[in-house]
């Protein structure tokens, strides 16, 4: 009873800023010229290639983040406790700054006459064309989302008792076997959380592609243009958003199958 009352402010907040907007999205998505219809969805079909491209980017950046984050998180979790804190601080530090500013600074680094090309110029290399490419967009996404992969994996790994690793090696397992059969299964919930935390925002990324890419849009940019612009179409914009939301729910559902125990953790 007590806890219920305490949650009232949160419930009000949730209603105003989550439930009501969601109802609007669903309403607009199914609202055709003459009432209920699927016409918004049929006119959204032609944007499937953009959706596909966005999902590929999201998948790519999630994979790169995972490959980079896993060893990092492992090393962090095995060093001295006071150093762990410093390392975590260093990971979090860039997140104290707004992501837009970080993307702007990336453009200065990657430009034709940017910092990297200037440095390479001193040793007679380049200039390389890095700005306004697919690679730049991927880099921007990885740069932006990497901490969201490292932190959950680290938090699970830091709870793995060192004695388990010692026991594993006492029983004759090599480093690789220990990693594969002890560390990996124990850190699995962290991986799942990390994948969700990176993939979902990555799939709906916008601005990053506009600033670093070659002018083509990702699905997030597309949704934006349907809500802000000289010709707005809330119906099609909502239909695309709804499709994206359903895909994300399916994605989370599938990942949940792999890891039933930590459903609660993952949705946070």
């Amino acid at each position: 009873m007590k806890t219920k009352k305490l949650s009232v402010p949160y419930l009000i907040w949730l209603t105003i800023f989550v439930v009501v907007p969601l109802v609007f999205v669903v309403y607009f998505a199914f609202q055709g010229e003459n009432g209920f219809s699927f016409e918004n969805f049929s006119s959204a079909v032609k944007y499937l290639p953009t959706l596909k491209k966005s999902l590929w980017y999201a998948l790519g950046s999630t994979a790169v983040c995972l490959v980079m984050a896993y060893p990092t998180a492992y090393i962090f979790s095995r060093i001295r406790a006071d150093r762990q804190k410093t390392m975590l601080l260093l990971i979090m530090l860039p997140m104290w700054m707004n992501f837009l500013l970080r993307i702007y600074s990336l453009t200065i680094i990657l430009e034709k006459n940017g910092i990297i090309n200037k440095l390479l110029g001193f040793v007679g290399l380049g200039p390389f064309n890095m700005m306004n490419t697919d690679g730049a967009v991927l880099l921007g996404m990885v740069y932006n989302f990497l901490p969201f992969m490292i932190l959950p994996i680290y938090s699970v790994m830091s709870k793995i008792d060192n004695r388990l690793l010692e026991a594993s090696s006492d029983l004759g397992a090599g480093a690789l076997t220990t990693l594969r059969r002890v560390v990996f299964p124990l850190s699995f919930p962290g991986i799942i959380t990390g994948i969700i935390q990176v993939f979902i925002p990555a799939a709906s990324t916008f601005v990053i592609s506009q600033r670093l890419g070659d002018g083509s849009m990702l699905i997030g940019d597309l949704i934006e243009t349907f809500f802000i612009g000289s010709y707005t179409n809330f119906g099609v914009g909502s239909a695309i958003s709804l499709v994206l939301m359903v895909l994300m729910l399916i994605f989370i559902g599938v990942l949940n199958l792999f890891d039933n125990e930590d459903v609660g953790d993952m949705l946070i």
């Binding site: 430009e111 006459n113 890419g213 002018g215």
Partner: peptide, 22 residues
């Protein structure tokens, strides 16, 4: 023109043109 352009820009034009990047 898409084949020719480096990217689509608004305010970034300042940084691109001032820095000899386009």
């Amino acid at each position: 023109l898409r084949e020719n352009w480096q990217g689509l820009v608004m305010d970034e034009t300042f940084e691109k043109m001032e820095g000899n990047n386009a």
